[in-house]
Design a protein around this nucleic acid. Structure first.
Ligand SMILES: [Mn+2]
Ligand SMILES: [Mn+2]
Ligand SMILES: [Mn+2]
Ligand SMILES: [Mn+2]
Lengths: 222, 222
DNA sequence: TTCTGAATTTAGGCTTGACTAATTATATTT
DNA sequence: AAATATAATTAGTCAAGCCTAAATTCAGAA
């Protein structure tokens, strides 16, 4: 029935999904950067994927790409694998949240649907991965995300961390050390309009965080 | 240091290891059959592997191949992955022994050394996989095998099953149904010299087994 | 020893997915 | 509106790994 795609194609679709979550098409250059592949190669691949029998993506020269429903499903399948695997590496093998990404990046392409079902069940069908990212459901729908970026909060606002969007292991380790992990309560003490720094309070302690950090933390406002 | 090999190369090395366990070189045809690849393609690959900087195998035209120490280590690394994975799929995800091979066949190539260490530790450093196959040690030595093929036993001999050497899911399911799994005690009731059938007793019941089955079961003689 | 069939190798081709270099299209300034 | 800078595409290569068809080599039988 459905011919399963290669590792490469799966990675393209996954990145395109992520880059188009904001509603706008993914550019060739952005994709190239995310995939660590030269732009010329990306052009070649997206032209091929747009030409397939049931097209995986929509493409017009110089306009970037968006996923078709077929491509979106394929992307969500890989993302579900990735996030379930990360959850499962943390829960059952004691990985830290900064150690799981690379491993999941390789495993996501080779596990069977049976394996996926088994770990989902063993984990109790989790809604979020160790970073707080939403896990697509078994029927491949992405749950609605109602989180707000910490960078959008101002003095006196507070909330609970839902998600940290980063694959940077050093950053993740640092955030873990100062206690900025999902479910932690945060309060904004001050905002500096010039550099967009936020002073926040976590568990009695305060930290001043730059935009490169606050833009990656998402919360549910209290 | 050591540049890791591709999936394909790893599968070649693994099969060559298995085919040369009896001491004689692996022939092109045998390899082609085991790998589901045409003989012409096998010739191409083994020539390439024999030509690498530290050669992975020894090859002389029309004489078959054997692994060099380097190739053997690479093979044992993959085999250790495979067998640890099978053990772990059975122990922690409830797979049946006839369901694990395919999954392990894909996972073996993508897990990290860290992952390997973690599952080995979680399983208590097992010596054998679910089929009873010996698991290469962490320093890549294959433990000595002292088992005897059931097909070599005769009337009145008895023993304990150590290993079932087969990847045939149907056969494995059948053996499981009649209780022929590792650790089970077996007694030979009769031997038919013409067709090499053995009549054996397992848990009060008797079965007549042909050579295609008895040659795949290995035991420790009582 | 010569013949013959099976095993193996050679030769030539194809697909996938990358790369570099050169070209073209778009967007930003002036 | 023209000039320029940036983004994207085209054109041409390459390496891995597989394939088929056509030699070639080897080993056992006559
Ligand atoms: Mn991740
Ligand atoms: Mn990946
Ligand atoms: Mn196996
Ligand atoms: Mn394999």
């Amino acid at each position: 029935m459905k011919k399963s795609s290669t590792q490469s194609v799966q990675d393209y679709l996954k990145r395109i999904y992520e880059l188009t979550e904001n509603g706008s098409p993914a550019s060739t250059n952005d994709l190239a950067r995310e995939l660590n592949i030269k732009p010329a190669s990306v052009t070649g691949m997206i032209q091929k994927l747009a030409a397939e029998k049931p097209a995986l993506l929509e493409y017009q020269k110089h306009q970037g790409v968006t996923l078709t429903p077929t491509g979106k499903r394929a992307a969500l399948e890989v993302i579900r694998h990735h996030r379930l695997l990360e959850t499962w590496l943390v829960q059952t093998l004691g990985y830290a949240w900064d150690e799981v990404h690379e491993e999941a990046e390789r495993l996501e392409h080779v596990i069977s649907e049976d394996f996926e079902r088994r770990i989902a069940a063993a984990l109790g069908h989790p809604l979020r991965d160790p970073h707080g990212e939403l896990i697509p459901t078994a029927d491949l729908k992405m749950p609605a995300d109602k989180s707000t970026s910490l960078s959008a909060l101002r003095k006196k606002q507070a909330g609970r961390i839902l998600c940290v969007k980063s694959a940077d292991a050093d950053l993740l380790r640092h955030l873990n050390e100062i206690g900025l992990t999902p479910n932690t309560m945060i309060e904004v003490i001050d905002y500096s309009p010039f550099d967009h720094n936020l002073t926040i309070k976590v568990e009695k302690k305060t930290y001043v965080l730059g935009l490169s950090i606050t833009s990656k933390i998402f919360l549910e406002i209290a």
